[in-house]
Amino acid sequence: MAEQKLGNPAVVGLAGFGLTTMVLQFHNVGWMGLGPVVWLGLIFGGLAQMIAGLQEMKTGNNFGYCAFTGYGCFWIALTLLLVGNHYNIYISSKTDVGWFLVAWTLFTVILWVGAMRVSSALAITFTLLLIGFILLDLAHFGYPDLTVVAGYELMVTAAMAWYIMAHIIYADLFGRDVLPVGKPWIG
């Protein structure tokens, strides 16, 4: 009996990560309000990415297990934080959100080093993500105009995450590597 083919949870994780990162930046540069960011963040960037992360456990991929579960929780926490502010439940000021982002920046530094052992595309994605987090940190501590710079920079990050998602999906569908991700930066 042939072994049943399993999907790669990373495609869902990268999809949710990329899409919600993208819509938050559409807000940050001023194209749209926060409504879609909250609900997409809760369901796709949050719930779906977190479940994808938990599914990574069975693939033996600790990087994906930590990253997708972690960033899935980031999105759930961020959206609940915004909803909490609306309903006056544990209000988070701009300074509070700033420190929340600083903690996630530090978390991202650890995964950034790990990403360099995986592929060039993932290393680029995490480099851009780290720069984006640092820009958002600065935007929360005295340089609000950097919100817009972070917005455009993180759109590229989201597009890179989708590139890796497309690499996995197309490799499966076309039977060959259509979108190469490059060698790891650290051999």
Partner: peptide, 10 residues
Amino acid sequence: TAADISFAAG
């Protein structure tokens, strides 16, 4: 005066 808000500028 300016109002400092998360994920917004101006």
